[in-house]
Structures are given as C-alpha cells and as structure tokens.
C-alpha cells in the first residue's frame, strides 16, 4: 500500500523542494475517497436525517463529502434515503445511470436496505434489486452518526479498489480455459442471492434481473 509521506525531505539537495512518491492507484483512490460528492435522494423521513448530516452540527464537510449537488451529473455518491416505491424505481435508476463513473451507492435506512416494515406491493424490497449498493445503513431512520460511519466504511472500501479493474468491469476480465484461479474482486458488483435470501415475492430471487451471472471457475483435476 502506498503512502503520501514526503520523500527525500531530509536530504540536503531536496530541502525546501520536497516531492511525493506514491503509487498511481493509491493516489487515485486517495483523491476519490476524500472528495465524494453526494447526490441526496431523500425519499422519506431518512431525508430529514440526511439534512441534519449535511448541516453544520454533524458537518459532513469534515470527511470531504459535503458538496451535495441536486443534479446527478455532478455527483458520484448516491445516498438513497428512504422508502423506494416501484413507481419511483425508474427515476432512481435513471438518476444512478446519469451519474458519471466511478460512482458508489449508500442505502440509508432499513426501507432502502430491505424494504423495512413495508412488506407491500408498492415498495422495493431493498434497493439492491435495482442498484448495486456499497454500504447499507441500518436504522429507522439512522442517526447522522451512522451515516458518517457508513461514509468512513465506504472510504475504506474505495481505498482497496482497483481503479483500472473498476473501469473495465467484471465481464471482460481475461479468463483462460482453466480459469484464472483467483477471485476477481469487484467492489461495486451485486452479490448473487442465495437460497437463504428467498422471500415469497422477492424479485431478487428471480433470474431475469439482468445482472451478469457470477463467473464460474472450473477446476480440472
């Protein structure tokens, strides 16, 4: 892992003209994680907590994520705060599509994480059935502290990313006939649902979600 420690400052020649030596991917991730621009998608009561989070008391500016823009074209962090209905799902997905890459998603509150108490015909049972979610925040609504914690977790997640791999995506990674034998870690990719996640009408358990199937690596004896 790289660092941003000044190099060569103690040597005689470079005194007063210090420089940094680091790795490119570390520098890219470092600059990305410290200037997240949130797109607040306040859908219900979580939106009130989100306003408190962006306000002076909880002060998201301490973590570099205070520049909330209400146009998705200028944002790279979608905070889904509240109950997402199926009628609103098209708008939410359009907002996500309009955000430039790289982009991350925080599902704030139980409603956007799992549908919450709305086990209903109108409510999306977790926004991860339409969006790739990075961090889930429990709470109904969560306190702003919890969202700050989610932001810090997301920053740690961005630290570990491979910027180039994020750019090319999981489907075009080169695969030999015997597979690569290693796990291609895609931080922003949706997890395949297991049988323990089945629900009576859970759309995530259906097969036509459009997400690419998890890649199978066959191991030959």
């Amino acid at each position: 892992m790289g660092s941003l420690k000044p190099v060569g400052a103690e040597s005689q020649e470079s005194q007063g003209s210090g420089f940094f030596a680091t790795r490119a991917d570390f520098l890219i991730n470092w600059s990305r994680k410290n200037s997240l621009w949130p797109m607040p998608l306040g859908l219900s009561c979580c939106g009130i907590e989100l306003m408190g989070l962006l306000g002076p008391k909880f002060d998201l500016a301490r973590f570099g994520a205070e520049a909330a823009r209400f146009t998705p074209r200028q944002c790279d962090l979608l905070i889904v705060a509240g109950t997402l209905t199926w009628k609103m799902a098209q708008a939410a997905r359009t907002i996500y599509d309009q955000m430039p890459d790289p982009k991350w998603v925080i599902a704030m509150g139980v409603c956007s994480s799992s549908g919450g108490m709305y086990d209903s015909y109108a409510v999306v049972q977790g926004v991860d059935s339409i969006l790739p979610v990075d961090v889930y925040v429990p709470g109904c609504p969560p306190r702003p502290d919890a969202v700050i914690d989610a932001l810090l977790k997301l920053q740690k997640k961005i630290e570990r990313e491979d910027p180039l791999g994020r750019l090319v995506g999981p489907t075009v990674a080169p695969v030999g006939e015997e597979g690569t034998g290693e796990l291609v870690f895609q931080p922003n990719h949706g997890l395949p649902k297991g049988p323990w996640d089945k629900h009576a009408h859970d759309p995530k358990s259906r097969e036509d979600l459009g997400d690419p199937a998890p890649r199978k690596t066959e191991v030959k004896p």
Partner: peptide, 12 residues
C-alpha cells in the same frame, strides 16, 4: 395479496 402480484413487472 398485500405483497402484490409481480410488483416489479413494470420496472423490469
């Protein structure tokens, strides 16, 4: 049914 009949069909 209160959980709906294919509630996500239009979105899909």
């Amino acid at each position: 049914p209160h959980q709906g009949i294919e509630p996500d069909r239009l979105y899909r």
